[in-house]
Design a protein around this nucleic acid. Structure first.
Lengths: 239, 239
DNA sequence: ATCTGTGAAGCCGTTCACAGCG
DNA sequence: CGCTGTGAACGGCTTCACAGAT
């Protein structure tokens, strides 16, 4: 009996740690790279290096999915791709709508990595009459008024928000009211949603600020200088 | 003696937890929102709600910066904005170069939240002759050949990579060789860099896959069906 | 009385080191 | 012998609950 015949019988009973789930897509990408180069089998050490983690973490992560490796040998690339894809739900199609078709929305609509792995963009919507009707990446931009119809008719299950900050919460409320329970938010706001809705945020400005913090520590070191403007907070104490 | 006069004397001696640093920009944004509405003082409960965290976490986070609140009252918005900004290094300017001016690079170049908080885009570079010379958001796109010059002459300290995946590592090597130690990577690859270089990654495809995982759990529940394609892994065992 | 600042406890994730299997 | 899978130790982050300040 080969390990394959165990299939998902001996898989962990629900509950893969969030930290692990967040890394599975990275492993998957590394595996696809190996696959393209024709690699058939890979050790935890090699795959971990390709994914930028250490091998103990990789093995622990994979152990949450099941026993898909062979001791003394490693993991079969194709098989592991399949197992991770299945665990992530990528063996089925996910229908995505992009709301907000400015520069960012356009970039997202044209992003190849989208369609390639089970994510199908089924709608581009915007509030701007000048943008509605334009063809972007082979799709015609529709008016935001049709949001609820589009979600219902096309079975959208993931909404990507690329609207201005001011519009994001309103649009979010509407997609949630239409039954969407997964939102990817590019607008620089904290969205409030019911518990059952998952929101993930992509925020370049936050990432830059985190980099600035570390950069400051490297460059400034024990400089200790007050930055310009600090004086205000000494002098205006009783103002 | 007011708390202000303590200034940074009693601040934590180096070492703010990473998890805290990652949230400071969120607090900062929430505070700016309050500031615009004219709020002078805010409690940990209110600010936490605006930032989407619980109040104990907020207070613990802020306690790593110093004692900037007033017991029985709360935090003074303007003062806290200043302290967090200073901690993050936003009271100084950071010079940014955007490398790769496709759809995404364009979106980034036009992003307002960039310039507004101490990040100055000092260069747009691309390898495509058709793009070089174009004016984007008031800047002329330069050829990637000039990368090293641009970094050195303009004092670039943060590189934003918006290139195709295949080019990212090469470009990264070049910016690192030019002395850049902070990289914000939008390309879907794991970059390898020396230890002293900080890399942060923004990857929509990964975020979507994480959403898909959770969405699958909600919808599929204890469905247990094998997805299409699964049969292959039973039938081809000895193939 | 109110709300901050913080020890202490608990939880989660990472790393170690080796048992177990091929 | 080689490499996976995993219990156990460790370290960091979150949460609790209350002492302390105004």
């Amino acid at each position: 009996m080969t390990p394959r015949q165990n299939r998902n019988r001996d898989r962990a009973e629900r509950g893969i740690p969030d930290a692990t789930v967040a890394r599975l897509p990275v492993y998957l990408r590394a595996l696809h790279g190996l696959q393209e180069r024709g690699t058939v089998t890979v050790s935890s050490e090699e795959l971990a290096a390709a994914a930028g983690v250490n091998s103990a973490k990789l093995r622990k992560d994979l152990s949450h999915l099941g026993s898909y490796g062979t001791r003394g040998v490693g993991y079969e690339v194709e098989y592991l791709v399949y197992q991770i894809s299945r665990e992530l739900g990528l063996t089925q199609d996910w229908v995505v709508a992009i709301i907000g078709v400015g520069n960012l929305g356009r970039a997202l609509a044209g992003y190849g990595g989208f369609a390639s792995r089970g994510f199908r963009v089924a709608g581009l919507l915007d509030a701007d009459e000048g943008i509605v009707g334009q063809e972007i990446s082979g799709m015609v931009v529709e008016h935001i008024d049709r949001l609820e119809e589009v979600i219902a008719e096309r079975g959208v299950s993931i909404a990507v928000l690329a609207t201005p900050a001011a519009a994001a919460q309103t649009v979010c409320d509407r997609v949630v009211a239409s039954g969407v329970t997964s939102v990817l938010n590019f607008a620089p706001v904290v969205l409030s949603v019911p518990d059952e809705v998952d929101v993930r945020k992509v925020d370049m400005s936050i990432e830059l600020q985190i980099l600035a913090f570390h950069e400051q520590r490297k460059a400034g070191g024990p400089l200790g200088e007050d930055p310009p403007g600090a004086a205000q907070y000494v002098e205006t104490v009783e103002a």
